[in-house]
Design a protein around this nucleic acid. Structure first.
Lengths: 153, 153
DNA sequence: TTACCTGCAAAGGGTTTGCACTTTG
DNA sequence: CAAAGTGCAAACCCTTTGCAGGTAA
């Protein structure tokens, strides 16, 4: 899925371009996955150990503030990040293996529009997060019946 | 919105009914809001101080495991809980005042069904969480332009 | 040069857990 | 009575912050 160019994006905000920030940007840009702060930290240090976890957090907060990355809570207690996609998309995450499937769903935009009209709210962000078991985990573990059809936003 | 009867629900799981658990169930049942663990703790203690925060967490975890309450991450760092509604619904939460608006949106069930078919996944939970500013906060603060139309699931 | 950025280590908030004691069934 | 549940306090994880030193522009 096409994502923003983070380097250009950050430069245009007037923030200084440091070695550490460049490294974080590269890792996020080149990754197709949803990385948590520790994963970003590890991947940056694999190339160049001269960065601290605090700087990773500070950089992620900066990028989020500037709208260049999105933060997700994929059912876990800690946050995951990804370079902001150009077009909206949503997430399914597998409770078995942790795999994340991204998908688009134009219906959601319609729901949001209706909400904005009926309630007079201004929408900033929309997260549709579905959890369950992916096809591989279902066949591997032969899962029995779960509470299906339950939905809660 | 109609919710499950927690007391009956928990009894049917075989869990023991203690004074503390009964109090937590009552608080959740009688509340229309989305309570966090601290709020449940406070409300229970207002009636009877003989409960610890640890027990509140343990009870909430139990109820969640049994599908009697749902846990939400409404954009904040900590979790909120509510007695599981009989019918699915979703949340808008205001970044200004914290107000939560519940709403239903049948389109979402369609999205979920399509995802299940196309990807072969089994769905356990669906969260649609929209953040922004409610009508009251918009008029009170006369907010300028934000990044609108951005959607990320 | 100087405002901004970093590393370190400590603090912070929310949540979980080990253990000895209490209570339910 | 045995198994399950509780309180306390310490531990835990993820994240943020104060401060002294470093660095981009």
């Amino acid at each position: 899925m096409a994502r923003q160019d983070l380097l250009t994006g950050l430069q245009s905000t007037g923030a200084r371009m440091t070695r550490q920030r460049r490294a974080v940007l590269q890792v996020l840009q080149e990754s197709d996955e949803h990385l948590d702060a520790a994963a970003v930290y590890d991947q940056v240090r694999a190339r160049d150990p001269r960065i601290s976890l605090a700087t990773v957090y500070r950089t992620l907060a900066l990028l989020k503030r500037e709208g260049l990355v999105n933060e997700h809570r994929l059912g876990q207690s800690h946050a995951h990040f990804e370079a902001a996609p150009r077009s909206p998309h949503y997430h399914f995450s597998c409770l078995g293996c942790g795999r994340v499937i991204e998908f688009d769903a134009p219906e959601v935009a319609r729901v949001v529009r209706r909400l904005a009209e009926e309630q007079g709210v201004r929408v900033r962000e929309t997260h549709l997060s579905i959890t369950g078991y992916c096809a591989a985990c279902r066949s591997a573990q032969g899962l029995g019946e779960e509470r299906c059809g339950s939905a809660n936003g």
